[in-house]
Amino acid sequence: MGVILEVKNLTKKFGGLTAVNDFSFEIKRGEFVGLIGPNGAGKTTVFNLISGFEKPNSGSIRFDGMDITGLKPYQIVNLGLVRTFQLVRSFHYMSVLDNVSVACLSPRGKKASEKVGLDKYASRILSEVGLIDKARFPPVILPHGDLRRLEIGKAAGTNPQILLLDEPFSGLSYEEQEHIHALIRRLSNEGVTIFITGHVLRELMNLVPRVIAMHQGKFITDGSPQEVANHKLVLEAYLGRGGGIA
């Protein structure tokens, strides 16, 4: 099992603020890893940097043995690294099915969908994420939980090797969270490497076997959920902010 994603000394500054500070970690192929930290810790920025939506001030990102620092987002997607957005982004005036079809029309998605046919392939993804009965609806009328699943469906449509999920649970009811839990587990079992963020520790605890913690842009610790939850700096980061762990 080789390393699929290797981030080294990543730094990103916004004016005077260092949102990500000398951040390094590795993820192996097939792993299921969480990234936690309180709001404003820099998790989304790390995702933006990896997926090419922002350019780092320094540091490097290697994906599948290849340096992808500075590549455009779509190029990175077409290598097999896809991310979802914390604030879901869908194509408002298109049907749910077409939303997924767009991803299936990207070069990587196309290769996978060509054998089955585009419509069939996209429908299959929709049934996997549980939206097949809403295939003809425009996303604007869907509830938040469905949009989150659509977001994952869109990402899955590009046939990724690694999936970066940015707070897929935030703002969802317990039931909706359970749906997404199951969905992500299934993707993981299918062999997709998963890297997932959350700002509430509890949400990720029973899901991932390994957690990376960050605070104020800096790496804190890396280990099993129990180790991380009991780490002194993690406790401070959360309690210091007035947020609870449990």
Binding site: Y74, V77, R83, F85, F91, Y93, M94, V102
Partner: peptide, 15 residues
């Protein structure tokens, strides 16, 4: 249409 509706999201879908 995807580009029209959300260019960033289209980019993130590998377009």
């Amino acid at each position: 249409k995807a580009i029209r509706d959300d260019e960033t999201a289209a980019d993130a879908s590998g377009i």
